[in-house]
């Protein structure tokens, strides 16, 4: 293992056991996140990107269970497999919020409405750092200033509803970075925001990351955000990573038919296509009843009968770091 790896996920499977059947939300996912780098995860709703993040922090919703796999978190003083920890135990609580922090999509629901943002940030600081309340308040004000909230010494006593969406998201980022995490998981951090505010928040995350040397796992459905932020990208479809690699490889040399189609189907600003967009036929299949073989085969333009519907394609490394799971590139 290289020295630069911070988090390694091996063959992770997270299933939901519901009355209607078993939903294989994450089904055999492998990836590595390097120190200080941004790892982007992109996919449509239901592909398992958020569940992957929740598996790492062990904050899965009820009935969700990690049935297999390892999530190895490398620290200076040795590594720990997060899957083996008790989700309610002290050990994961020390990691959660301190070494691995999370920023959620909807800042209005992720922040408690009856406490001031200062209270909430101070709580996080007191939990993980050995400081007094007064010191924690000073740190909180300093953090709010760092994330670009004007007049932090006043805003520290504001309630979430008194702040705009962008400001709330900044407050949540302040809370997340309060204990200098080595990994920040950002789940659709800008989806609820307007474009000009989105640009500000992405810029903020990028700058904080540079300053603090933390790694980011950025989950989004927006290819534009990925292109802007990520060093490495994983494209997910129905619980699997279908393609992964360095950002330039994914955008300029996409191999998996799903990635190719996804990139073609976005209307790009400044590149007006006359007439119709190239769209992906059909829709995401029912999660209780997944297609056999390659899960993309019913919608795939390059589908080969007798191959794609029979077996799951193996992951093939095309160039260094660029991996794709598709029979077009071998493994038949």
């Amino acid at each position: 293992m290289g020295d630069n790896v911070l988090l390694e996920v091996k063959n992770l499977r997270t299933y939901f056991f519901l009355d209607e059947g078993v939903v294989k939300a994450v089904d055999g996912v492998n990836f590595k996140i390097e120190k200080g780098k941004t790892f982007g995860v992109v996919g449509e709703s239901g592909c398992g990107k958020s569940i992957t993040a929740q598996s790492i922090l062990r904050i899965l919703p009820p009935r969700g269970e990690i049935v297999e796999g390892e999530i190895i978190f490398y620290r200076d003083d040795g590594s720990v497999d997060l899957v083996k920890l008790d989700p309610k135990g002290q050990e994961i609580r020390d990691i959660r919020g301190k070494e691995v922090a999370m920023v959620f999509q909807e800042p209005m629901t992720a922040l408690a409405p009856v406490y001031t943002i200062g209270d909430q940030i101070i709580e996080a600081i007191l939990l993980h750092q050995n400081v007094t309340k007064e010191q924690a308040r000073k740190i909180a004000i300093d953090l709010l200033g760092r994330v670009g909230i004007p007049k932090p010494e006043e805003r520290v006593d504001a309630y979430p509803f008194e702040l705009s969406g962008g400001m709330r998201q900044r407050a949540m980022i302040a809370m997340a970075i309060s204990s200098n995490p080595s990994l920040l998981i950002a789940d659709e951090p800008t989806t609820a925001l307007d474009v000009t505010i989105q640009a500000q928040i992405l810029d903020l995350i990028k700058n904080l990351q540079k300053e603090m040397g933390m790694a980011t796992m950025l989950i989004t459905h927006n290819m534009g955000v990925i292109a802007e932020m990520a060093d490495d990208v994983a494209v997910m479809y129905l619980g699997k990573i279908v393609e992964s690699g360095p950002v330039n490889e994914i955008f300029y040399n996409p191999k998996h038919p799903y990635t190719v189609a996804l990139l073609k189907s976005i209307p790009k600003v400044g590149k007006k296509v006359k007439g119709r967009l190239e769209s992906i036929e059909g829709m995401v299949p029912d999660p209780y009843n997944l297609p056999t073989g390659c899960r993309f085969h019913p919608r795939c333009p390059s589908y080969v009968e007798g191959t794609c519907d029979k077996a799951e394609p193996p992951e093939i490394e095309i160039t260094t770091g660029h991996k794709v799971s598709c029979f077009l590139y071998g493994g038949r």
Binding site: L202, V225, A227, E228, G270
Partner: peptide
Amino acid sequence: AVPKPDPKYRETRKLL
């Protein structure tokens, strides 16, 4: 401000 789905536009953005 729109994030463009093309990594070469990185850093060219002016912030409002």
